[in-house]
Nucleic acid binder design. Structure first.
Lengths: 138, 138
DNA sequence: AAATAAAATGCAAATGATTTGCAAAAAACG
DNA sequence: CGTTTTTTGCAAATCATTTGCATTTTATTT
């Protein structure tokens, strides 16, 4: 008879990120957005709920070169985020889920020719998305 | 008539990482290794020299998911590190330079099919190298 | 070799993201 | 309601990294 507690903050975070599957937000960005929505949690509470959600594998935590903060990203079973790579735009933060047949070629090649077994969850390809490339090519 | 100062610490760091092109070390690892070699610099000095070397594009600074520290990697023009991806073993830290023809296929595909222009310098594929995979498959 | 200028160093303290200890508030369940 | 367990907030700790500043080292010029 395990008790089922729930935190409104945790629910809010999951909903919020679930509506933004193509982006990744930092703890403080989430904190700010939540406050704008009238829900005032302590930043520590945000961190704790993010930790729980990562433990429950409902969110993914990513840190890439040049960033000082961790970023959190929605992770649902039906997104298959553990089996594909993510492209992250270094300008706007947009996430592109690399859900194409080419993905398999990459992992096969790495394994066959380099003996390397990729861990998609922790890997990320950084660069410029189409929109930001267009903007910067003024 | 720009004066040319040089720091023995900077030289030591570059030499040390230059002899370890297939690995990446953190500031404190470098600090420790340097001390073992009888050269005692303050950790702050290590940080400052690493910054300079990154500015001079002689080292690359990388941070990946799950790591709290920055890691530094030797970067020489003849290694073409800016135009290929790096595979990083999450277990032993080994770096594999993805210097193969397949690399071009990856970047071409990302650009053509996803409009994404990869920045190899900040991208890294994390996973298990051949040796660590063999060990963990006991 | 001494004087000057610029850069490199060490120390202490600041920073910024994240974590932790602890007591109080909220939720679950009998 | 009363008890138990979880969640929260606050203050303080932590950890990697950075900064301010006075001192030392180095390069270059007398």
């Amino acid at each position: 008879m395990a008790k089922e507690y729930h935190s409104k903050y945790k629910t809010w975070i999951l909903d919020y990120l679930g509506e933004r599957k193509d982006s990744r937000l930092s703890a403080s960005e989430i904190h700010t957005a939540m406050a704008k929505d009238g829900l005032n949690a302590n930043l520590v509470t945000i961190y704790r709920n993010l930790d729980r959600l990562v433990d429950e594998k409902k969110l993914n935590r990513q840190k890439i070169s040049g960033e000082e903060e961790n970023f959190y990203q929605f992770l649902a079973p039906d997104l298959h985020c553990t089996s594909h790579l993510h492209l992250i735009c270094s300008k706007c933060g947009r996430i592109i889920h690399l859900n194409c047949e080419f993905m398999k070629e990459i992992s096969d090649h790495l394994l066959a020719d380099h003996g390397f077994q990729i861990d998609c969850q922790d890997s990320a390809l950084v660069g410029l998305c189409r929109d930001c490339r267009a903007k910067s090519a003024v």
